[in-house]
Design a protein around this nucleic acid. Sequence first.
DNA 1: AGAGGTACCTGGCAGC
DNA 2: TGCTGCCAGGTACCTC
Length: 273
Amino acid sequence: MPELPEVETVRCGIIPHLINQRVKAVYIRQPRLRWLVPNELASQIPGAIIEQIHRRGKYLLIQTNRGTLIIHLGMSGSLRILSTVDIAGKHDHIDLKLSNNKLLRFNDPRRFGAWLWTIDDALLHPLLASLGPEPLTPNFNGEYLYAKSRSRKTTIKQFIMDNQIVVGVGNIYASEALFLAGIHPAQAANLISKQRYKRLADSIKQILNYAITVGGTTIRNFSDSAGKPGYFKQQLWVYGRKLQACKKCESLLKELRLGQRSTVFCPKCQKKK
DNA sequence: AGAGGTACCTGGCAGC
DNA sequence: TGCTGCCAGGTACCTC
């Protein structure tokens, strides 16, 4: 499941194969993704030269001299670099054929992903314009979270998973960060102190940075095997470990459902206070 | 404005 | 063996 660290790993992995290449062709086998792949993408991207690849939250922004390709991997999407002789398999929905005779291939079994196109500033695109700050920048910190949370009665877990508050924190990292910060996931966001928010912001940065480091080493051979999940799995404190022993205090981990999402936590290490 | 719920989609698994 | 049903996940969008 591509969360921010994996998207960043993908970005670094595809950069050397894509930068300064001309798009020779685009093959769209399945246009029905999260949204229909726009006709403008098919008509405008062939011939474009790829200049830069940015990331905003979990969105990849492939900037060309004609416009920007906006890619979201959704839940099950992956990108691979292949040679043009590779035949498409199941769920290989889109290929970009490049002037270096490589293919950027998008595979997405659940089709929650997206391929969009804009000729304007991609950061002003409706999907991106109202996103919260990047978690790994200095302006995301405890002070910020504290200020934003004053009027929010929702649970702290749902609060940090809100893209308008901060991007890139999905179900896994929200659970892990709350464990590291010692905060009960069901605590109301407006009842948490500034000091605890500082610890939470630090925990989010720590867990994401760590995952990027691990992801970066695992997916080194990007053209051979992309998007192999599980690299982070052995390091998880709580996610997916309900009814197992807490790795810190050996208490039995409990499960809650918050916003229809499974939430595992340690009743002893994580307090509402 | 904020909170809660729903939809989208498929593979994998449990249970019958 | 095959069927059914549920779950996982991100996030836009709907309603209250």
